[in-house]
């Protein structure tokens, strides 16, 4: 497949796809991090974005959401400009991207997910609190609502981030390395929440770094190394030759063998 330029730039965006990216290029100081990438994510499934370190996985998500400004490219959600669909999209950034010494309790962070409902001035009422507690319960953190966020372990912080995303009540969940540096129990808790979301017909797209769990966790895989390498169902696309193309020499033979 290799390089795919924005060959179908004239086509209307797909109203089915929760997130469609066309011809996206992002550069840091003129070195492309993501170059001319097309991606169309399928609704109602879980897709892993996989690639070596520095391959532009996180950048792809951030540029799609407008967090970093792309040099070129169009992004649409359900066939509309993404800005009109913000209320249906939830984003879970990397845990390390924030200062955890911030004066906030767990429940305060989850309530940030309800900003769209609360707006500038509306008071936080019982139903908002109940919704927030419900999200905490789903990630197994309901006993921690009053805890200061700095006192949490890495895994617990990641669960709080997921709870905040749940509070947004979105249809598309974009997660940046949700399993990075978390304990085994948290990984299990997060994946079961994500699978629950899929069951409800929601779409999940996650940047993922652990190749060994890709087939267990995900339905589809999007391979990237600055350019798009391959995209499709795990059993068709998650193959030795595709991985070799994405990772080049960086993929150890032992890892390859483990994948079968």
């Amino acid at each position: 497949m290799g390089l795919t330029l924005a060959r179908d730039a004239g086509r209307a965006p797909d109203a089915q796809s929760p997130l469609e990216i066309r011809g996206l290029t992002v550069t840091y100081a003129e070195k492309p991090a993501v170059f001319s990438v097309d991606a169309r994510f399928e609704p109602g499934v879980m897709t892993a974005i996989v690639g070596p370190n520095g391959a532009g996985k996180s950048t792809l998500l951030k540029a799609a959401l407008g967090i970093v400004r792309p040099v070129s490219g169009q992004v649409s959600a359900w066939g509309a400009p993404i800005d009109r669909m913000r209320g249906r999209i939830a984003y879970v950034p990397q845990r390390a991207s924030v200062d955890w010494d911030f004066p906030a309790r767990v429940i305060d962070v989850v309530l940030m997910g309800q900003y769209r409902q609360l707006g500038l001035l509306r008071r936080v009422r019982t139903r908002h609190m109940e919704a927030a507690f419900d999200c905490l319960r789903r990630v197994g953190m309901d006993g921690f609502a009053e805890r200061q966020i700095g006192q949490l372990s890495g895994g617990q912080q990641q669960r709080v981030f997921l709870a905040r995303a749940l509070a947004q009540g979105a249809d598309l969940y974009l997660l940046d390395e949700p399993f990075a540096g978390v304990d085994a129990a948290t990984e299990k808790a997060i994946i079961s929440v994500l699978k629950e979301l899929r069951q409800q017909g929601k779409t999940v797209v996650a940047v993922h770094h652990d190749l060994s769990t890709v087939p267990d966790y995900f339905d589809r895989v999007f391979l990237i190394n600055t350019t798009r390498i391959a995209e499709g169902p795990v059993d068709k696309v998650f193959t030795q030759s595709n991985l070799q193309e994405a990772y080049g020499g960086r993929l150890a033979t032992a890892q390859m063998n483990a994948l079968g």
């Binding site: 959401l65 800005d83 200062d99 911030f102 940030m112 500038l120």
Partner: peptide, 20 residues
């Protein structure tokens, strides 16, 4: 009046941008 958006941006600007 602006305390909520200012708090969210101060804590997690990436999340804030992602939420539009």
């Amino acid at each position: 009046l602006l305390r909520r958006p200012m708090t969210i941006v101060a804590f997690d600007p990436e999340f804030a941008a992602g939420a539009g």
